[in-house]
């Protein structure tokens, strides 16, 4: 099968790549663009470790074909910090120890940012349901949920 020539924007940069129809966006990010921050935990869209946004919407990169990226804007964990300044969520995760092994962390951060970009005053229940597509086996979610709530409060100026 012939490869597709895909032009898209990844983390604000114009990107071109060739991809087989069977290759997922996650394959392209990790294997071609060397953006290995998005992790493959299940390859079936159930763990959220590969969370990225496409045109601002949170998705699992393992359930998007690489060819679908044509003309889209993709954001990954690698672009969450601005220069040498961590995003407030990244900073809070560090301070609150909201990570243990760190494998699910990029996905949680991308998902949490996607929530706070839409809603800076989520209830605990809203945070828990928004993050229900991201699995963490280490933390019991407690410190993750608290961190997201705390950052939301800071963003509101509380």
């Amino acid at each position: 099968m012939s490869k597709h020539h895909v032009t898209s924007t990844v983390n604000g940069e114009p990107v071109e790549f060739l991809c087989e129809p069977q290759e997922t966006l996650l394959d392209i990010l990790r294997d071609q663009l060397d953006l290995t921050g998005s992790k493959e935990g299940c390859s079936s869209g159930d763990c959220g470790a590969c969370s990225v946004t496409i045109d601002g919407r949170l998705v699992c990169a393992c359930l998007v074909l690489g060819a679908e990226a044509e003309g889209r804007k993709i954001e990954t964990i690698e672009n969450m910090a601005e220069g040498d300044t961590l995003h407030p969520l990244q900073q809070k995760f560090l301070e609150e120890a909201a990570l243990q092994c760190g494998f699910c962390t990029p996905g949680f951060l991308v998902a949490a940012k996607s929530l706070l970009d839409r809603n800076d005053n989520p209830t605990e229940t809203e945070v828990r349901y928004w993050l229900a597509g991201n699995l963490c086996r280490c933390t019991g979610y407690d410190k993750i949920v608290k961190s997201v709530m705390d950052v939301a409060a800071e963003m509101r100026g509380e």
Partner: peptide, 21 residues
């Protein structure tokens, strides 16, 4: 004390290398 872990920044930025990376 509740210090920030030394490997933390790599793990919140996607820089940390796991086995498949």
């Amino acid at each position: 004390k509740r210090t920030v872990r030394p490997d933390g920044t790599d793990k919140v930025t996607g820089r940390a290398l796991f086995s498949a990376d």
